[in-house]
Design a protein around this nucleic acid. Structure first.
Lengths: 356, 356
DNA sequence: TCACAAGATGTAATCGATTACAAAAATCGA
DNA sequence: TCGATTTTTGTAATCGATTACATCTTGTGA
């Protein structure tokens, strides 16, 4: 029973099935794709032959003929960020249901990796594109737009005609987060940002500034630390924070991982959260439920975001809508938990004296 | 400059380029795939035409003719587990370099989702398969083996002929972890397992039992809690743990997330880690660096695992080796950090009295 | 200059399905 | 039963590349 040669499985073509059933290939094809078009008797005959031969259509041939690949390209900045994994789950749920496959384009935070996926789009290996980046990937000569494929921008709206976005209310949520900190009595703020180049960061920072202004503060009342959306950005921010003479007490981090890195680092230096410093994150990843103290954060509807984004793309691919009609902004929920609290000026002052 | 119709981009075929350059399609094809076969002059002529027209080969047509899809299917049990994301990074690095694309098969911990990916393999949409599951997916009628495609098992060896594995030394690492706990003076142990059905769990539990025996203990000296590799499994284990009258002091969790869930839960009930209970995880995910206290764990070389697995698959796909020659077991490193420590019997006893 | 080998290019078959169109079979009403 | 109509089936073109084989060029040595 053991098979000697590698890949010894015989390939069965539609012609084999046709012969076995005593019909033409056209009939077999029709039975499989449009059963109403054939007589019941023929249908049964063909299905029997399909079953007996174990025939499965060669999808590459189908793709070539029908000019539909039934694949979607998803471009993600970094796979290990649970935010993207979570969104991807939603995307997957939706696309799988409609019979589409997912080709994953992982940039791993390195822009030079874009080129490869631009080629992939241009060579028509996919029917549509979901961007979890805040920009349209280029390959030097061309951009993904040149593929003419439908694109949906998630994570950040891209200011180009014909590209709908499915995003969250970054700006509004960030503003509310700052106002919340202000209501708790904080007067000096910290902002741990993403990398400046991304549009998502532009939105959140705008929201942050709006919040600062709305609460009656100015540009001088906050410090800003910059870095990618990773743990270590929070660590670096903490190092800078710990050096400061006049430390902020209300910190907003533009991603949960940075917030977690920050908290871990300052606690290691005996700074108490939230008594000495309040921290609020952004994302609502699962980890944030397991930190000590549990992280106050702006929870994005990540799974839903993925579902809706995929759904919009499906509609576009099926030409059911013009892209202009499909932009969506989902609400973000402020989840008040344990890393934020009212300012305790006395304690904080005394602590500062003792550690400096 | 604005484009009215959706998907109005004109498709350029190889025949167009041939016409533009005044040569045959065969020559264009040769210039692109095997430049040495054409004269320099012709080469330049064709490249000029390619550039002018912006031609990019239709990869579906290429796939059909060459019978190679240049895609690999990666089956993962759950995308949001950072272990898989990290392995996927390694896989991606390796495959991208060789020009392969990745189609992601996310089971999301639901076995009924396998069927779809079995079909994908059988319909030849990929050239090879990487399994991050401990078993071979089925669709009722057939299994992925029937595709005849090369398969590499990662995460757990699969006891079937012709399927090489690239895994870590689960059993050895687990045994060492238990012995380490024993050396610290622990005499009652806890084991937070994965789901019983997975082979990976079988290996780790075997290692655990070996360790127990090697340290001179018996089946009666440990308790076992079962669940999938997620945070909440640790939470449930903690609930059970907290109810116990004779609590174990040395806990091994078969995944970091469970360990983290466990620690968070017991600490919430004023059980101290590691003074009252030592916990050791398995995986070495990044998040484990940011818990408080930092998690002692068995660190898998996740990125390397991905690279090596992809590499073996590449070799198989290129028929460079027989599968029998390619199984690998990478070492796991015990990372001693803050959640483990020597038993403090006195403290522990008094604490027990006060909380019971 | 010519014969022949080596190299470059072109012609057309091929990969395996779908589908427009043509042809055959079934159905129906008179 | 016959012809018209509808339904079912078959034939062959098609998707867009690659490549075996045939043909034409070029180069070499006598």
């Amino acid at each position: 029973m053991s098979r000697k040669r590698w890949r010894a499985v015989k390939e069965i073509r539609i012609a084999d099935v046709a012969q076995l059933a005593g019909v033409s290939t056209a009939t077999v094809s029709r039975v499989l794709s449009d059963p109403d078009k054939v007589r019941q008797k023929t249908h049964d005959l063909v299905m029997e032959a399909v079953k007996r031969s174990g025939y499965i259509p060669n999808s590459t041939a189908q793709k070539l003929r029908t000019r539909r690949t039934m694949n979607v390209l998803v471009i993600a900045p970094r796979l290990t960020n649970p935010v993207f994994a979570e969104i991807l789950r939603g995307v997957d749920d939706e696309l799988t249901q409609s019979g589409y496959g997912i080709i994953i384009g992982n940039l791993d935070n390195r822009r030079e990796r874009e080129a490869r996926y631009v080629d992939l789009a241009l060579s028509r290996q996919v029917d549509g594109i979901l961007l979890l980046t805040g920009y349209i990937p280029q390959n030097g000569t061309r951009s993904m737009r040149d593929s003419g494929l439908p694109i949906v921008a998630m994570c950040a709206a891209i200011p180009e005609e014909g590209i709908p976005h499915v995003v969250v209310q970054d700006r509004e949520a960030t503003r509310q987060a700052v106002e919340y900190l202000a209501r708790l009595g904080h007067r000096r703020f910290g902002y741990i940002s993403g990398t400046l180049s991304s549009i998502i960061e532009v939105e959140r920072f705008a929201g942050f500034q709006e919040g600062i202004a709305a609460a009656g503060f100015s540009q001088n009342d906050f410090v800003r630390w910059e870095g990618p959306f990773v743990f270590s950005t929070g660590v670096s921010a903490a190092e800078s924070f710990l050096q400061m003479r006049d430390r902020p007490t209300g910190i907003f981090a533009a991603c949960d991982e940075s917030a977690i890195g920050f908290i871990k680092s300052v606690r290691a230096k005996r700074v108490r959260v939230p008594q000495d410093v309040s921290v609020i994150g952004f994302d609502g990843i699962e980890y944030a439920d397991y930190t000590e103290p549990t992280l106050t954060t702006c929870r994005q509807p990540l799974h839903e975001l993925g579902c809706v984004g995929a759904d919009v793309l499906l509609k576009l691919m099926h030409n059911q809508m013009k892209p202009e009609d499909w932009s969506v902004r989902l609400p973000v929920m402020l989840l008040e938990r344990e890393t934020t609290g009212p300012v305790l000026h006395k304690d904080y002052q005394s602590l500062r004296r003792s550690t400096v």
